[in-house]
């Protein structure tokens, strides 16, 4: 589904990713962990198509297509979804209208008709109950005045509505209390299928108790320095990142 080869990218002339290789297949959950400044958010931004980042080498193949040729909206149409670490507040645009526009623009890009209003409403209701979201939420301005937890829940709500093939959850656990974390994780798990995939980007292992990864990768100084299964996450939790750093130095 996703194949990243030797990806090198940076911002404002500063090199951050120094050759990333990563392959994600349908049905898989990958976790990318690493200390602050290791390049986790850069990786998610580059996959989603944030223009501030320059790609200096390598490529990202998504279902046989070179993602780097596409704009962020086109990537979304292909089925890529990025849950933001800091979702943006957009005053004056309600949650409903935002989601409606996003869904229908995607459908338009695929040559499909707009989703009928009643179908849209039904789907919204269904996904809202999955994420334990109140009805009043829909008519509020997007993320405006939302608590940290509400913002993250809104991200997953959008994900549920858009049904992406590949979802990237960037630090979705930050700012969540344990109850909200469980609701969000539960939502993600219910949306999982053998046809879609999830990349969880996180500093802590906490979220991975709920969204259990098939693979764990450790990102350090712009490279994936270690890959393993979920036990690697526990190891990191227990020992911190220092031993990775030391291992790198020794290696």
């Amino acid at each position: 589904m996703l194949k990243i080869s030797n990806l090198q990218a940076g911002i404002e002339g500063k090199e951050i990713l120094k050759g990333i290789d990563l392959e994600v297949k349908p049905g898989e959950v990958h976790a990318i962990m690493g200390p602050n400044g290791s390049g986790k958010s850069t990786l998610s931004s580059v996959i989603a198509g944030r223009e501030d980042y320059e790609v200096n080498g390598g490529n990202i193949d998504f279902e046989g297509e070179d993602l780097l040729d596409l704009g962020p909206d086109e990537r979304a149409h292909k089925g890529i979804f990025l849950s933001f670490q800091y979702p943006v507040e957009i005053p004056g645009v309600t949650v409903t209208n935002f989601i409606k526009t996003a869904i229908n623009e995607s459908r338009k890009a695929k040559g499909e008709e707009a989703m009928p209003a009643n179908e849209m409403l039904k789907k919204m209701r269904e996904k809202m109950s999955l994420l334990e979201i109140d009805n009043a939420f829909l008519s509020r301005s997007l993320n405006e005045g939302f608590s940290g937890g509400e913002k993250k829940r809104n991200e997953i709500f959008q994900m549920a509505m858009l049904e992406p093939k590949l979802a990237i959850l960037d630090e979705t656990d930050s700012g969540l209390d344990i109850d909200a974390l469980r609701i969000v994780a539960n939502g993600v798990n219910k949306l999982k299928s053998k046809n879609n995939a999830v990349i969880v980007i996180t500093h802590y292992q906490r979220l991975l108790d709920y969204i259990v990864p098939d693979f764990v990768h450790v990102l350090y100084k712009g490279r994936i320095v270690k890959s393993g299964d979920k036990t690697l996450a526990h190891e990191l939790e227990a020992k911190g990142y220092d031993w990775i750093k030391e291992e790198r130095v020794e290696g």
Partner: peptide, 19 residues
């Protein structure tokens, strides 16, 4: 905000207009 909207599939022109 523009990037956020684009990343959800709203093309740049429509995203600008919506904002």
């Amino acid at each position: 905000a523009l990037f956020y909207m684009q990343s959800r599939g709203i093309p740049e022109k429509e995203a600008k207009a919506l904002l």
